[in-house]
Measured scan of single mutants.
Amino acid sequence: SPISQSQFIPLGEILCLAISAMNSARKPVTQEALMEHLTTCFPGVPTPSQEILRHTLNTLVRERKIYPTPDGYFIVTP
């Protein structure tokens, strides 16, 4: 029987999409709110552990794709 394939999207890209959507909705993007958003909006995607989430967010900050503030994470705009 054929095996169904799913699209692979890197966690960093999913986080950027989620942060962008939450920023547009003016929702604060904390790590907890981000986990909740991922569970709700990406039900088929396994939720990352806190450690993996933190590591991926730090990587995105180093890559200058997002930036942290006391009010949460935001997408870097050119």
Rank of each mutant, 00 (worst) to 15 (best):
I3A: 08
T59D: 11
P2M: 13
P2H: 14
Y67K: 15
T40S: 12
Q50F: 13
G44Y: 10
P78H: 04
L17H: 14
I52G: 07
M35C: 10
Y67S: 12
E63Q: 14
Q7I: 08
G72L: 01
I66Y: 00
A33E: 08
L38F: 13
T40E: 09
H55P: 03
Y67I: 13
P70R: 14
L34M: 03
P68Q: 15
I3N: 04
H55M: 07
P46Y: 02
L60F: 02
Y73Q: 08
K65I: 03
Q7R: 11
V76G: 12
S24Q: 13
N23D: 08
L53Y: 06
N23M: 03
V76W: 11
L11N: 01
P78C: 15
C41I: 05
E36C: 08
T69R: 11
A25C: 09
E51P: 13
A33N: 15
R64Q: 09
P78G: 03
R64G: 14
A33S: 12
S1N: 06
L53T: 14
N58I: 10
R26W: 05
H37V: 01
K27Q: 15
S6T: 07
A21M: 03
P10I: 15
P2Q: 15
P70I: 13
G44L: 07
S49M: 01
Q7N: 11
V45L: 09
L34I: 11
E63G: 09
L34H: 00
V45Y: 14
R64S: 11
R64A: 10
F74P: 01
Q31F: 07
P43S: 11
L57A: 01
I52P: 01
S1P: 01
A18L: 01
V61A: 14
Y73K: 07
T56I: 15
I9P: 14
V76E: 14
K27T: 14
N23C: 03
S4I: 07
R54A: 13
E51N: 02
S6W: 03
F42V: 09
L53R: 00
H37K: 04
Q50E: 10
S49C: 08
S6H: 02
I75K: 03
T69V: 05
F42I: 13
I66D: 00
T59R: 12
L57T: 04
L15V: 14
E63D: 12
S4H: 13
L15W: 00
K27I: 08
S24N: 15
Q7L: 07
L17D: 08
P46V: 07
Y67N: 08
A18F: 01
C16Y: 11
N58F: 04
P68N: 13
P43W: 03
V61T: 13
I14V: 10
S4A: 07
T69F: 08
V45T: 10
G44C: 09
P46I: 13
C41F: 13
R54N: 13
G72M: 03
A25L: 11
T30D: 08
S1C: 04
S1K: 01
I3S: 12
L53A: 06
E63Y: 10
R54H: 02
C16F: 08
Q50I: 14
L11K: 01
R62T: 14
P10W: 15
I14K: 10
I52C: 10
Q5Y: 09
S20R: 11
E32N: 05
P68A: 15
I9E: 15
Y67H: 12
R62A: 14
P48G: 02
I75V: 13
I14D: 03
D71E: 12
V29E: 00
G72T: 05
A21S: 15
I19H: 00
V45I: 14
F74Q: 12
E36K: 12
T30K: 07
G12D: 05
L17F: 07
